[in-house]
Amino acid sequence: MKKGTLKQILLITDGCSNKGENPSAVAALAFEQGITVNVIGVLEDSQTEHDSGLQEVEDIALSGGGVSQIVYQQVLSKTVQAVTKQAMTQTLQGVVNQELQQILGPNQSLEDLPPEQRGEVMEVVEDLGETCDLEVLVLVDTSASMTDKLPTVQEALFDLSVSLNARIGRNRFSIYAFPGKKTAINKVLDWAPRLDSISSVFPKLTSGGITPTGPALKEAMYQFGKKSLLRSFRNENRSDVEEA
């Protein structure tokens, strides 16, 4: 099996979008493009998990094929890495399940195998999770209510980098904040193998009033596209040269 690159968007927000297209629809579109959308909803200490504003968090992840969790900021670090890793396993398991169906016939999934064989399949999933390449675009909501949570977000992202860089496979991270000053999103950190450099970047963030989650997601999706476009462009060039 060829080891591909897993693509994820990790959206960290604290509430409802109020501008632009429906974020769930955009997330579904991203999923179609092979990008998983995970969402972490950060609660105020006074909020409860069942706050209505946070239903959106679950919906976006559901249509984005990803994982969602709603947490208080104290446990953000552990959550960020757990969500990312779980989404990886989930995606890979989906891929392996598809392969299984090709071998065993339709309507056969991992759970239909006896426990002994299931163990062998899970080993394959784990191997893939350890060795595959991973690209994570972190999209941070920096609207007014998030301001006091940003230091914790930063710590959590650093922790994520510690976790993922212990893997054998390669990682690339980038961070975007929304809303941007004039555009939908603002680049905080361009694609990099580690997140150590964020300490100097994050404090500059300015917080605004609107929360255009949908447009921001769409723009984030485009950041993956742009990069792969550039890559395929380069590849074409190379093949041209070879032919000449």
């Binding site: 510690v162 976790s163 212990a166 054998i168």
Partner: peptide
């Protein structure tokens, strides 16, 4: 490989004392 499961208090990554 990367540590599969850990608890922050016992994890050297959390204490900035090493990798995972």
């Amino acid at each position: 490989r990367s540590i599969k499961e850990y608890t922050e208090f016992y994890d050297r990554g959390y204490w900035n004392m090493g990798s995972r």
